[in-house]
Amino acid sequence: MNVLWTWIAAGLTLAIFSFLYKDNPFYKFAEHIYVGSSAAFWFIYLWYFDIKPKLLDAWVMNTGFEKYILIVPAILSVMMLTRFIPQIAWISRWAIAFTVGMGAGLGITGALQGFLVPQVQATMLPLWEPVSSSTLYNLGHSLNNLLLVLGTITAIFYFYFSREHKGGLGVLSKIGITFIMVAFGASFGYTIMARVSLLIGRIYFLFHDWLHLV
């Protein structure tokens, strides 16, 4: 049984790799299989990890207010499906409005709690911090702190477009773009390594699990 499945996996892998030559029917076939099975897979995932435990199981397990309040998301969910009936499709706007409002509310609280406050807090570093008995180490450590503060502030200045980047603002934005370029280069290198490790995994699968050559 596993041999058959390994051959199927190898066939799909090779069909996708065939795109490196050019767009061809084998690639298109595998691509369509991927899209179709992914859509169904993520729906099953959503059903078993989100909708079922948070709505159906919660309805069975809870009592009183905690149980009946679940009618609200259930009604909103049904409202979302009214888009299938053109005459009453406008009702879905109510459910969309709820998700948009929720998204906006979570956008504010999430941005404040997850991004703004922690990032600003982490950037408030002492510019001279003796953490060791070695002066050279302290100097290096403090220089790193200084670079972190300078890089963060100047990167923000680079994205300030309300005034022309001339004079002092021009100097700050130039320093900012220098940091941003290093960051993009590092992120690019990091992404390449992640993709290459996936590629190595697939090639290892073909040579080890399928062909038994390594």
């Binding site: 504010i108 790193n144 670079l147 972190l148 960051a183």
Partner: peptide, 28 residues
Amino acid sequence: MNIPQLAAKRGIFIGIALGGIAMSLRII
């Protein structure tokens, strides 16, 4: 990764957070 990359990323994240808050307020 830990110093220049993190510094620029923090600047970008702070910008994203401020932009996100402004957009969310416009929606609300």
